[in-house]
Simulated scan of single mutants.
Amino acid sequence: MTWQDKRMWLQRNPVTAARHIDYIFEQLWEKVILSGTHPVGQILIYDLRKEMQGRGTAHFHAAVLVKGATQLNVDPEEEIVAIADKFVKCVLPDKVENYELYQLVLTRQIYHHTRTCTKKQIVTCRFHYPRPPSPQTVLAHVPNDEDASLIKQ
């Protein structure tokens, strides 16, 4: 199918498209994430949320408790960062080795400017992109009550 054909089909069949997205997510979640192979570890508890974007496309958020996972304010920060770096990558896949994944990352995971970048401002991008990737995972700490009172002032 050409891009125009796909676009036309999606516009004419939004319910079918939304149901298909749900189906694909359920298959991924149950047959990969919750499978016996435990790709991110054994999941003890999870909470899922589906949100609809302005264009009507669904996207999902998940919070999971993994058996033996590190904990904020309990385990050393270096261990927490090591776990995050094990599963979260900022790398463009090899074009020759895995061309399909390379194309997916290039087209869907890399920021592209849109009209909203210059909305109400005359700048290249009001979100200040492109930004270089962080060389390491950074943990943001929630301020305690004393710190929060300083922020409010």
Rank of each mutant, 00 (worst) to 15 (best):
131 R>E: 03
14 P>Y: 14
66 V>W: 00
11 Q>P: 00
153 Q>H: 12
124 T>G: 06
54 G>C: 01
112 H>C: 13
33 I>A: 12
68 G>H: 01
18 A>D: 08
33 I>T: 11
129 Y>S: 04
77 E>Q: 11
127 F>N: 01
55 R>C: 09
44 L>K: 13
77 E>H: 13
46 Y>D: 15
124 T>Y: 05
21 I>L: 12
123 V>S: 04
9 W>C: 06
33 I>W: 14
8 M>F: 05
53 Q>F: 03
103 Q>N: 15
39 P>I: 01
101 L>N: 13
92 L>E: 09
122 I>F: 09
51 E>I: 07
144 N>P: 03
132 P>V: 01
67 K>P: 01
143 P>I: 02
21 I>Y: 07
71 Q>R: 14
110 I>M: 15
52 M>C: 01
133 P>H: 09
20 H>V: 05
135 P>E: 10
10 L>V: 04
133 P>V: 03
143 P>L: 02
144 N>K: 04
52 M>P: 01
82 A>L: 05
147 D>E: 13
121 Q>H: 08
13 N>H: 14
120 K>D: 15
108 R>L: 08
40 V>A: 12
99 Y>D: 09
115 R>K: 10
89 K>A: 06
50 K>D: 04
6 K>Y: 08
96 V>H: 04
93 P>M: 11
84 A>R: 05
104 L>W: 05
14 P>H: 11
51 E>S: 15
118 T>L: 02
27 Q>F: 04
70 T>K: 13
139 L>G: 08
23 Y>W: 15
136 Q>W: 04
104 L>S: 08
151 I>M: 11
34 L>V: 12
106 L>I: 05
68 G>Q: 02
42 Q>L: 08
109 Q>W: 10
133 P>D: 05
52 M>T: 12
130 P>W: 10
60 F>K: 00
119 K>Q: 10
101 L>V: 15
